[in-house]
Design a protein around this nucleic acid. Sequence first.
DNA 1: TAGTGGTCTAGACCACGTA
DNA 2: ACGTGGTCTAGACCACTAG
Lengths: 244, 244
Amino acid sequence: MKTVSVTVPTVALRAQIMDHIVGHITAGEWASGDLVPAERELMTQFGASRMTVHNALRDLTSRGFLTRRKGAGTYVAEPRPYASHFDHLDIIEEIRSRGGAHSAKIIRREIRMPTKEEAAEFSSDGPLFHAVVLHSENGEPIELEDRLLDPVSIPDCVAVDLSNRSLFSILMLVRPYREGSERVRPVLLNADERKFLGVRAGEPALEIVRKTWTPERIITIARLLRVREGACLIGQISSGGQAC
Amino acid sequence: MKTVSVTVPTVALRAQIMDHIVGHITAGEWASGDLVPAERELMTQFGASRMTVHNALRDLTSRGFLTRRKGAGTYVAEPRPYASHFDHLDIIEEIRSRGGAHSAKIIRREIRMPTKEEAAEFSSDGPLFHAVVLHSENGEPIELEDRLLDPVSIPDCVAVDLSNRSLFSILMLVRPYREGSERVRPVLLNADERKFLGVRAGEPALEIVRKTWTPERIITIARLLRVREGACLIGQISSGGQAC
DNA sequence: TAGTGGTCTAGACCACGTA
DNA sequence: ACGTGGTCTAGACCACTAG
């Protein structure tokens, strides 16, 4: 006889408890508002300590599957409303992920004084960096980027090479963990825009207006006009789980 | 002398540790890839037990602020690429949130056999529920909804009152915790579509094609044509934290 | 080998809600 | 009064990584 050491595929107790509960929810056996077994009950059911059970339930709560009320109990959460998710906010990344070749042409790049409206948007009378860049995929223009930037955020923004890196990705490096808003709508292009983008009148275009800010101030406002492949946005829809 | 009992605003130790770390990250003092103090070090720094420190770090890891490697250490995570979020996938909710009055007109509602392409999409030769609904806000049409639905998901879908509830919200009730994909692009409308929506030729429209499924099968495919207020989508941009 | 994170236990005290 | 979740401790054993 010989003793052989075997790697037992141990599944963490916490994960077992979480799977057990999520399983019942997604299977529809436990509906929204239903009471979930109490911590002390799950302890005996799984032979786990209270800490383990509690951490499993806390995790599921932060993911949006459960709601808990001190003194009352643990309940299956209401499914949160659906939301759609779009990645690839950076046109250069988007093109690369499709396997295309990106090129950019700088149409304008200057530091100038803001108009009254712009000064109000940025809550500042200081000069603004204004860039207009035409992005192309495999030689075909797909996005016209018109961007205003508070130079305070990127002091050397005038020196930046706009053709290889997008201003967007540079902002991400300098100022991660920010927030913003986005407005998407279909528009008709004017003659200048059509000329730059190389499309004929009547060709539908997508306008994306994006504002991003730090807790203190607006950093940048971008107006993106997209045509051809660029005018098509692909997103994912999700709900229920996940804290977003 | 009298002893007065005071409610001390105790901040949970775990939260203190989390705030401490997130603070250093968002302030830019700890950059991506930097090593974060080890659990045993934070224990002495905060006078906390290892469980408390560990749970704080695990929480921040699940939120995307940190990455951890067993045997190596805890590091500040790379900021994840930006993503934008759109709520209000339900046109009726969207209109209500604007304070508008919703009305709907059923243009088509039938159960019919699928075309070859549709059968392939649904991986089923069974009959499909096909509905076309025109949604209006304050009397003005803003969305033309063309929806195919696998009747298996909602057996009594033919009986549903489409004017007060959207099929979307009903699906949410019956089948929460699903996923889907969404494609958004600007389009030109044909004569029929313009007639229904009451817009003139050349008016830009937004097309949204949405597919949602359970782990097993596709439930529904919807093609939404949006004009006027409906053609404008407002979303939020976020990055850095949060596990999505 | 020393240090790291991953996991778990057994017990404790507290605040809260229900009855 | 009792059961619930919220929080924390002080230990323990393990697997992994690095020098």
